[in-house]
């Protein structure tokens, strides 16, 4: 066992982990931050996306010890300080960008990373950016729409709400 320390959602945390402990396991099992989900074992589905030092990564595809000393952001830390939904989260609710909710944490975290680097993405840019996030429920329509809305764009002309 090795001690790992990091800042998660602004709070310093540490724990004893094995070399093989994944960041997703550390978050879920050690810190009980179960909002980060694991949907595959080949780093494709993106349900586990978190931010490490400001960048989106697949936490099921990164060892916890690799994040030692890092700033980690998860879905649990996304809401506003008063507990209300942040702009992206609110857009997902407003535009029905989620159904079963399992892919949602990864979608929100990827969307946040996208809008940080590209504040007003086109539809094509949103779709392209989400290529590492699978959703089985929504057909992506309302996810793309929600992200564009969260970027401040008028989405009222997009077919059917």
């Amino acid at each position: 066992m090795t001690q790992v320390s990091m800042t998660v959602n602004g709070k310093p945390v540490s724990g004893d982990v094995e070399g093989r402990t994944l960041l997703s396991s550390f978050l879920r099992d050690h810190l009980s931050l179960t909002g980060t989900h694991v949907g595959c074992d080949t780093a494709q589905c993106g349900a586990c996306v978190v931010h490490v030092d400001g960048e989106a990564v697949k936490s099921c595809n990164m060892l916890a010890l690799e994040a030692d000393g890092s700033e980690v952001g998860t879905i649990e830390g996304q809401a506003n300080s008063d507990g209300s939904l942040n702009t992206i989260q609110q857009a997902f609710q407003d535009h029905h960008g989620l159904q079963c909710g399992f892919c949602t944490p990864g979608m929100v975290m990827s969307a946040a990373a996208l809008l940080k680097e590209n504040p007003r993405p086109t539809e094509a840019e949103v779709r392209k950016y989400l290529e590492g996030n699978l959703c089985r429920c929504t057909g992506y329509h309302n996810i793309v729409k929600a992200i564009m809305a969260a970027s401040g764009q008028n989405v009222s002309s997009i077919a059917a709400e």
């Binding site: 780093a43 993106g46 996306v49 490490v52 960048e55 989106a56 990564v57 697949k58 595809n61 990164m62 990827s110 990373a113 996208l114 950016y129 290529e131 590492g132 996030n133």
Partner: peptide, 9 residues
């Protein structure tokens, strides 16, 4: 290569 999260690692 891969997707944005993969490219970050």
């Amino acid at each position: 290569i891969g997707d944005p999260a993969v490219r970050n690692r």
